[in-house]
Each structure stands twice: as structure tokens, then as C-alpha cells.
Amino acid sequence: MASSDYSAGPEPMVDPAGPSLRNSEGHTDYDITWPWERGPLTPGLTCVFRVRDEARNLPWVLPPMFEAVQHVVLVDNGSTDGTAEVAAEVAERLGVTDRFTLTSYPFQVARAGEEHLHTAPDSVHSLTYFYNWSFAQVRTAYSMKWDGDMVLTREGVALLKDLSWQLRGSGAVVAIPRHPMSIESDSVAWLDLGFRFLEPWIYPMGPEFTFVKAFEWEVREFPPTSERVVTPEGMCVELKWLDQDEFAHWSTTDFDAVRTPRKARELEVYRALSQGRGEEIEGLVRVESPPGVHVIDYVTGTWMAQAPRPLVKRPDSMET
């Protein structure tokens, strides 16, 4: 069952008409009722994490996010590494449990790619349904999709603090560039600054901003008239540990370089670094932190702010 511990205002009335969406398996505890159908939404921005086995990353990921937004929802999808316990400990240590909702989604979710394509969107095993259920836990007017391996820089924290009130009533959608960071050791990492990784992350909450099924993954809809805001580079890094399989959540890695260029680039970089060929890939930058400073802390706290702009230098035809 979803946690009812949410501090963003009083518990709203449940729509007497019943759930907005029912799942095909008949798990009524996991039917979906849209938050805007329960009552007025509270001003502010909620970050929604959908995670599985992210305990290693959360000590870096959660603290800056708690600093940046009004509320955090973390949905644990069957982790076996203590992800939920780590998240709860971080929130307790920071004294922000009143701004944190920790809940679980116990169903096995289809992996991106072929498995997702062949799973009905109203199934509890569908990425589409999982995302809609997760975002139905939001009670604020704006929500933010975020991954359990993405760390805000100091500039990113400041930006989100400002956006949380600037977006109020605007209806705008916000796209944030991210920079993949492959971690070789505690002191060495490789930043991919040879490809522009850009996608929308922040949306208003409402019936025009729900998730629908696409070929490889879920997609959040938004009206073509929505203003699109693109933030500067250097706001966040995406952690990729070279001792882990970065593509375990994919049912196939036969990526089309035309239709899915972002994933093709990620696979190219992962293979090159795994084989010790990082210097052969255009746009990969090796970063070494000072003694006694973890490379993640160094990049997000110092290196990124000092790096010359633009960070990504690549022809427009290679951007997404």
C-alpha cells in the first residue's frame, strides 16, 4: 500500500466516482486516482523517484534534492540492497521526514525496450502504469521526474529553488541537461561532454500531463502550446559505476542510432570505458579529484562550476 504520510496540506477527499484508472489485473489497492480529482493541489514542486537498488547512489542524490524542492516522493520497486532503508536514514539524518513520502510498488515492471512494447499500458507490470501510479502520489501543483542516480550540482540546487516559485501558474515544462559521469574509482571519473543529453523533467500536474506508452519506454504528454524552458548546462550529473551493468533494465541493447541516439551513445561510452579505451571517445573528459575528496563531491561541488561554457561541444546534428 502507498504511504499516506504527506505533509503538503490536509488529506483531500477521495473522488466518490472511484479511481481514475484501474489496472487490468484487478489489484484495487493499486488503482490510480489523479491528485487533482481529490482536491486542490498545494503550490510547490515535488520530486518523484522511481527506484530499484539505488542504495549506493542515494547518499549523494537525496540531500541536494531535499534542499532544492518542497517534497520528495520515493517509490521503491522491489529493491534488494536496502534502498528504502538508506532513503529513510538520509531523510531522518537531515530532519526532513515531514517532507518525504516513502512508498513501494511491489510488481515486477517490464524492462524498457521489447518487454515494455509487449506489455499493455493498463497492466501493473507496465512502465506507463507504474509511472502514472507513482506520480499520483504527488499533492503539489508541479512535479519532477528524477532518477535515483542523478545528483544535483550546487548550481542545480539554486536553480530548482528559484523555479519552485517562478513556475507557479505558468504551465511551463522544464528541460534540464544532464551529464553522464562514469565512475572508475573514488578519485577518477569520466564525464561525457561530447553529446547533449536533454529532456523534459519538470511538468505541471493535470490531465494533460500524464504518461502514455511509447515504443521503448513511457512518455509524459504535454500540450503543444506549453512553454518550454531549458535550463543551463551543469545542473546535474548522472552516476554510472563501471563495476555495474548499466543496461540491466533493458530487454535489448540493439539500439538504433537514428531513433535512439542517446542510448546508442551511452552504450558506446560504457563499452569503451569498460575496455579501458576512454581516451578514444571524442567528448569524454577524465576528471581526477584532489586527495581525500570523492570524485562525485568534487565534480558536483567544484569542478562543474569552474568548467568553461559551453560544456558540451558537439554539432547540432548529434544533439537530442
Rank of each mutant, 00 (worst) to 15 (best):
A55V: 03
N57P: 10
L58S: 03
P59S: 05
V61P: 06
P63W: 05
A68Q: 14
A68K: 13
V69H: 08
V72T: 12
V75H: 11
T80N: 15
D81V: 07
D81M: 09
G82P: 02
T83I: 11
A84Y: 13
A84W: 13
E85M: 06
A87K: 07
A87F: 08
A91K: 11
L94S: 06
V96F: 06
V96I: 07
T97Q: 14
D98N: 14
D98H: 14
R99H: 14
F100A: 12
T101G: 10
L102Y: 09
Q108R: 11
R111I: 05
R111L: 04
E115M: 10
E115Q: 12
E115T: 09
H116N: 04
H116K: 01
P121W: 06
P121T: 02
S123W: 10
Y131Q: 11
N132C: 09
Q137R: 01
V138D: 00
R139F: 02
Y142E: 04
S143N: 11
M144T: 03
D147N: 09
M150C: 14
V151M: 03
T153I: 10
E155P: 05
L159D: 07
L163V: 03
S164I: 04
Q166T: 09
R168V: 12
R168D: 15
S170Y: 00
G171T: 02
A172S: 00
V173P: 00
V173L: 01
P177G: 12
P177R: 10
P180I: 03
M181D: 10
S182V: 11
I183A: 08
S187T: 06
A189N: 05
W190S: 08
L191V: 01
D192Y: 00
D192F: 04
